[in-house]
Structure formats: C-alpha cells, structure tokens
Amino acid sequence: MMECRDVRELADSFLSEQLLVETNHELLRHLETCPVCRREMTDRRALRDQLRSAFMHAEDLSPRPEFAAGLRTTLRSSQPGMTRRSVLQSWWTLAAGLALAAGGGLFVRNSTARSRLAATARVAAGDHQNCAVTFTLAERPIGLEDAGRRYGAPYRALATFVPTVVDGTIEMLERHACVYQGQRFGHVVFRYRGALTSLLVTDGVAPPVPELEPIDTGPAIASLPVGRFVGFVVADLDRTRVLHLAQALAEPLSQHLA
C-alpha cells in the first residue's frame, strides 16, 4: 500500500502523466483514502493550470500581428521555386519512375509496403496483448481528447466513434492513446462475441481493402484502410470473423476520422 511519502515523491510524475499504469492506479487508490494528499495534488494541479493560463494570456509575450504575416512571406520565399529547369527535371523523374514501375518497380514497392504493414501489424498485436489484455505498457496511456490536442484531430475523433455490427453486440470497455514499441496508437477496446477486441489506428501503410495479416500465433489480426491511417482489428476469435469485423468497420471509421 502506498504511503503519503511515496505519493509526494511521485507527485511530479503523476501530474505530468508519466507514471506506469500500475503505479498510477496505486497512487489513485491512495488519493481516494487520503484527503491531505488529495488536497496537495489538487493544489499542484491548480498551480500548473494557472501557470499555463498566465503564460497563454500574457500580453507582453504575444507576437505582433504583422510578425506572423511577415513570417509566411519569408518562409514561402525560402522555398525553392519551381523553375523551368526543375519542372523539366521533374518530368524526367516522373517518366523514369513510370518506366521503372513498368519494369517491375511496382512489385518492389508493393513488397516493401507489404513488409512495413506486416511489421506494424505485429506491433499492433503486441499492443493488444500488453495494453488491452495484460495492461502492462511501459508508458501510461492518455485520453483521446488529450491525444487529440497533442497529436492531431483524428485521435479526438476516435473518442466518439461508435463501432456497430450486424452479427452481434459490442460492449465498449476503454478508449485511449497508447504507445507500444515506439508506435503510437489510438486504441478502442471492446467486447465482441465474448472476446476482448482491439481496434487500433496509427500512422503507416494501409492495405487497399481490409485483409487478414499472416501471423501464425496469438490472436487473429486484420488490417484495414482508415483514410490516411492504417487500422487493425485484433481479437482471439475465428480469423474469418475478425476479417468480417474489419470489413464492417473500415468505411464508417474512415468517414468518422475524415
């Protein structure tokens, strides 16, 4: 059982959302029973929020309105222009690229994309196992709203996505953003046909249509295109059922995140 002294030592990391999941839970359990530590934590959080607010609203820290406009002009002019020569070079590059593709380049490209997708799928399967099943990630997951602020709107959109299927019911369990082996995922965990199921969305190469990933051991995993992202459905279910689930989710999820 965590004591007040431990809580004070961990307070900074707790406030910065840097604690491991287990430690975080222990600390929260302590806070539920200790009004002194709860007050201390509330005060610290208020202090941080006020600092953020003071910083954001300080007049003397704000840029001159003309600075941003001037900056755009400077940056645009720092871009290398498309001269006649560069345009010609570009056309030659394109022509060479097309010739290469005709000669087998597309095969190489597809093969590379395929191996990247397989690698991401393995990481997604690991995230399902270590986050949804055993809850033993090294880095604490954060809320999708928070992730939306930090990493972009699609994470926030995932917070409101409601997966629907025709062949069963879905019981929502958890939504967050988590990191496994350096890959960040938007992660929705739900129960489908009695199995703990993960829907994971991340940056990466996506297949043109939902397809099963050739992973021999562990749960079945299907990849799906989600706009400019790639999604994975992972569950300890029959492979065909996992593929059907991915097919059912692909279109509505893409539209929701667009």
Binding site: F55, M56, A58, D60, L61, S62, P63, R64, F67, A68, L71, T74
Partner: peptide, 23 residues
C-alpha cells in the same frame, strides 16, 4: 506560431531576438 513565439519571448526576453529565433 503564437505558442512558439511566447516560448521564444520568455526565453529571449526581448522581441527582436524572439522573432529572430522563431523565424
């Protein structure tokens, strides 16, 4: 840019240097 400038302004302490840093 606004947040970046505020950060630069805090660190630099003067507007000219902050604008230069951001640019």
């Amino acid at each position: 840019v606004d947040r970046l400038f505020r950060h630069a302004m805090w660190l630099a302490g003067n507007r000219t240097e902050a604008e230069d840093l951001v640019q």
